[in-house]
Structure formats: structure tokens, C-alpha cells
């Protein structure tokens, strides 16, 4: 290259100008968000997708079994787990989630261009800056209904994708001599730290407890995929077979619904989300919403994730999630 290049400062200036222009251009055409919004689906009819989503996951398990049988030999369970994880892993996204947001077999909200436009207007995180809010740099996850629970399709990524890492932490701790309870505790704590830092609150301003619930359940999915008393896949008489089909009902709980299990927000985000949430107060009396939340309460239990969050709240390391609930928001607004 020529030695007599333009002065470095001129180059830097041009570079900075380009970056500023690009960020500005990008901000004008922002994605709707990384998060999911179950409030938007309140009062909207959704078909139960348990069997459809089960069929999709079981198709992949069947294909994994066929792949293992083509190899024709026994493999370590950890290798089988990784091969399943690899089958649906994509760039930052998960194949099951990608399928569920696109397939005409999946009843979801929003769905179709018209409802997408409405969603863009009403989206819970829509009041935040599309330029500086990194949470809005990614697409939204529509809501689906599984076993009576409304959840974002992102939970499929958490259950079958992110949970792979949870399981690795769990396994690592087990291999180092931790008891199952200790290993579980280490994995869950590490997962929480990830959600607080690189995956959640520090990046998007949202700590999703529902995501943590799905991660936790997914850890057990991977643990029992090919090991334990009741595995999904077994190697039996020289043949791999799907012994027990995958069933989302084994994992999904009401805590996966982010309109029921409130997220924890950083202050800058909460002020804007709260204003949008207020718009749903009247919907709390909607018969479908009331019935759904009543059914949730009847199924609700204290989960491992909730125990850990409670511990963090008592230690003053996290704010109480109940302060971010729709009930609290509406009650405060009424007073």
C-alpha cells in the first residue's frame, strides 16, 4: 500500500461519521425486540400447541435415533446429548423456535403481517429506544399456548438450547464430586449470573425469571435424554430407539408466562414498560384472562428458581419481582 496515505485523523473522522450514520440508519428500522410479550396475547384465542410442538421435537429425536443407528454403535450419553443440541442449533437462535415462529401449523400471536403491525404498536417494550435498547435489536418471540400456559417461543430456545449449557455446568460439578443437589445449585446459580450479565439484565435491562425456569427444566431434559431411570433414548440390543417421546407437559409451568411471572427490570426500562403495562389493567377483568390466571394459581408451586431469587432478594442483590407484577402496577395506579 502507498506510504503517503491520507492523515490518520482524516480517516478516523470519516470512520466515525460512517459509524454514526449507520447507527442512525439502523435505528430507524429497528427490530421489535429480543423479548416476548404475553400481555399482547391476552384475550386472543390461541389453539393449544402441545401436540404440535411435541411432534416437532419428537421428529428431531427420531432423526437423531436414525443418525445414531446409521453409525451403528453405542455412544456415550453426553455425546448423544450434544448431537441433539447440534441438530437444532443455529446462529444465536434455535431451530425449534425458528420453526414455531414460521410454521402455519403453529397457532401464535402475533401472527401474520396485520397482527405484527398491531404488535409493533402495542409491544410491551415498544416505548423504549430502538437505537440504544439492545433488547430491541432482536426479533420478538410470539406467544403460543402449551398445556394451558401462554409462553413465548423463546422458551423453546431456553428449554432445548440454553439449557444445554446449564446441563454442562451441572455435569461438570457432578464430575468434580458434587452431589446432585449441589451440582443443580451450582448450575442454577451460574445460569442466574449469565442472565443477570451477558444474556439478560445488563444487555436488555430485563431479567426474565420465566427464561430461567425454562433453562432449569431444560437441564433435566438433557440429563434424562439418555440416562437415568426413564430416558427418552436408549441403546438396547445393539439398536438405538426412542423409548419415551418428548412431552412439553413434563416441563412447562405457569411460571413460563411472563405476564404471570413478572420480569425484573432495570429502572430506566421499567419506567417505560410500566406505562405500557398500565394499558392492560382493564384486561385483568377479561373472563379469559381471569380464568387463565386462576388456573395458573391452582397449578403454581415454588420452583427452584423462585427459591434462588427469593434468596437474592433477601440478600438485597435483586429487587423483589412482585414489584413488577401487573397486579402491583394496577393497584398503585388505582390508589
Amino acid at each position: 500500500m502507498r506510504g503517503t496515505a491520507r492523515p490518520a485523523s482524516a480517516h478516523f473522522g470519516l470512520f466515525a461519521l460512517v459509524v454514526a450514520l449507520l447507527l442512525g440508519l439502523g435505528g430507524g428500522d429497528a427490530a421489535e425486540g429480543l423479548e416476548t410479550d404475553q400481555f399482547f396475547a391476552w384475550g386472543r384465542h390461541l389453539e393449544d400447541m402441545t401436540e404440535v410442538l411435541n411432534a416437532r421435537v419428537n421428529l428431531e429425536l427420531e432423526r437423531l435415533v436414525a443418525e445414531l443407528n446409521r453409525d451403528g454403535r453405542e455412544r456415550r450419553c453426553q455425546n448423544v446429548r450434544f448431537r441433539f443440541f447440534k441438530r437444532h442449533r443455529m446462529l444465536f437462535f434455535d431451530g425449534f423456535e425458528t420453526w414455531s415462529v414460521n410454521s402455519p401449523l403453529v397457532s401464535r400471536s402475533p401472527s401474520g403481517p396485520e397482527e405484527m403491525r398491531e404488535f409493533e404498536r402495542k409491544y410491551l417494550y415498544g416505548g423504549t429506544s430502538p437505537l440504544f435498547d439492545t433488547g430491541r435489536w432482536m426479533p420478538p418471540s410470539p406467544t403460543v399456548e402449551v398445556d394451558g400456559v401462554r409462553l413465548g417461543t423463546d422458551k423453546l430456545t431456553h428449554l432445548l438450547g440454553t439449557a444445554w449449557y446449564y446441563h454442562r455446568w451441572y455435569r461438570k460439578a457432578s464430575l468434580r464430586g458434587a452431589t446432585p443437589a449441589e451440582a443443580e445449585d451450582r448450575a442454577v446459580r451460574r445460569g442466574l449470573q449469565h442472565e443477570i450479565t451477558i444474556l439478560g439484565r445488563a444487555v436488555s435491562g430485563v431479567l426474565s425469571l420465566a427464561d430461567l425456569e425454562a433453562n432449569y427444566e431444560g437441564m433435566w431434559f438433557y440429563e434424562h435424554l439418555c440416562a437415568g431411570d426413564d430416558p427418552n433414548i436408549v441403546y438396547d440390543a445393539g439398536v438405538w430407539r426412542l423409548r419415551r417421546p418428548f412431552d412439553l407437559r413434563d416441563y412447562v409451568t405457569p411460571e413460563w408466562d411472563e405476564s404471570y411471572q413478572p420480569n425484573i427490570y432495570v429502572r430506566r426500562k421499567w419506567e417505560k414498560v410500566k406505562q405500557r403495562m398500565l394499558g392492560y389493567c382493564s384486561m385483568l377483568e377479561h373472563p379469559r384472562v381471569r380464568a387463565m390466571r386462576q388456573a395458573y394459581r391452582e397449578r403454581d408451586r415454588v420452583t427452584e428458581t423462585e427459591r434462588l431469587i427469593d434468596e437474592m432478594v433477601v440478600a438485597g442483590k435483586l429487587p423483589d419481582p412482585s414489584g413488577f407484577s401487573i397486579e402491583r402496577v394496577c393497584r398503585e395506579a388505582a390508589n
Binding site: V18, M90, F93, T98, W99, N102, S103, G112, M116
Partner: peptide, 29 residues
């Protein structure tokens, strides 16, 4: 902005095989 093109604008196409029913209004790979 790049070396050696400096300021440039590119246009082209990507040809991909994907499930036929996918509308990709949310996202696709």
C-alpha cells in the same frame, strides 16, 4: 466504508433452500 473501496454501496442476492411454508415475517435462517 472499507479498505480499499472506501465508501461503497453493494447490491446482490442470496439464494437459500428453506421450508416452503415459512413466511419469515418474524425471522428465518
Amino acid at each position: 466504508y472499507s479498505i480499499p473501496l472506501e465508501f461503497s454501496a453493494g447490491g446482490g442476492a442470496i439464494l437459500a433452500r428453506m421450508p416452503a411454508s415459512h413466511d419469515c415475517t418474524t425471522f428465518c435462517e
